[in-house]
Simulated scan of single mutants.
Amino acid sequence: MTESLNDLLNSISVLERSDTKYYKLNDFHSALNKMYGEAVELSDTIITPFYICDSGILEIYDYELNIRLVDSHNKEALILTKTGKKSINEVNPEIVQKLTNCYLEIVKPQRVLLTNILEKYVDYVKTSPQIKERISEYLHEFDNEKLYFEVY
């Protein structure tokens, strides 16, 4: 039987602040590793990363994972719409990489995604030099253990 994303989330650490549930990114990564290659049932979902420390909470909104149920794939159109460009060749390759890693389409009626695809996103967030640099600049620290996420 295929697990839902909620089932998977219920198996990892939660930090509750102001009626918001933040899930530890490293725990999510471990849970995905245990289920590598298995399917997880989803609907339209947004996973937004946060860095939470004594100094505060930093939302890393531009690295949120947007998972959409669609009638057909059209990632190139999304990239052109987001960037306002007319050709994919006009888009900075770093922006293409970010949008490719932070947007997933599941063609209807399918509602499942393999855990290794979610794990690829988690790896991208955990190893992003841009995220590490931003957090270090604003909060003067960086520790992978302080990466969390919220699900919408």
Rank of each mutant, 00 (worst) to 15 (best):
T2Y: 04
T2E: 10
E3C: 05
E3T: 05
S4W: 01
N6M: 15
D7G: 03
L9N: 03
L9R: 03
L9F: 05
S13T: 15
R17E: 10
R17F: 03
D19W: 12
T20M: 05
T20D: 08
T20V: 13
Y22M: 13
Y22L: 14
L25Y: 06
N26H: 06
H29F: 14
S30M: 01
S30H: 07
A31M: 05
L32V: 04
N33I: 07
K34F: 13
M35W: 11
E41K: 13
E41A: 12
L42F: 09
T45Q: 05
I46C: 11
I46W: 10
I47S: 06
T48E: 14
F50H: 15
F50E: 08
Y51W: 09
Y51C: 06
G56D: 00
E59Y: 10
Y61G: 13
Y63Q: 09
Y63R: 12
E64A: 11
L65C: 02
N66R: 12
R68S: 09
L69A: 03
L69F: 07
D71E: 08
S72Y: 15
H73R: 02
K75S: 06
E76G: 03
L78Y: 15
L78V: 14
K82Y: 07
K82S: 02
T83N: 04
G84P: 03
K85L: 04
K86I: 08
N89M: 11
N89W: 02
N92G: 02
N92K: 08
Q97P: 00
K98D: 01
K98F: 03
T100E: 12
Y103E: 08
L104D: 01
L104Y: 10
I106C: 05
I106L: 08
K108L: 13
Q110F: 04
R111Q: 10
L114T: 09
E119Q: 13
K120F: 12
V122Y: 03
D123L: 11
Y124S: 04
V125W: 06
V125M: 09
S128D: 00
E133W: 12
E133R: 12
R134I: 10
I135A: 00
Y138N: 05
F142T: 09
N144E: 11
N144Y: 00
E145I: 02
K146T: 06
K146L: 11
Y148P: 02
V151W: 14
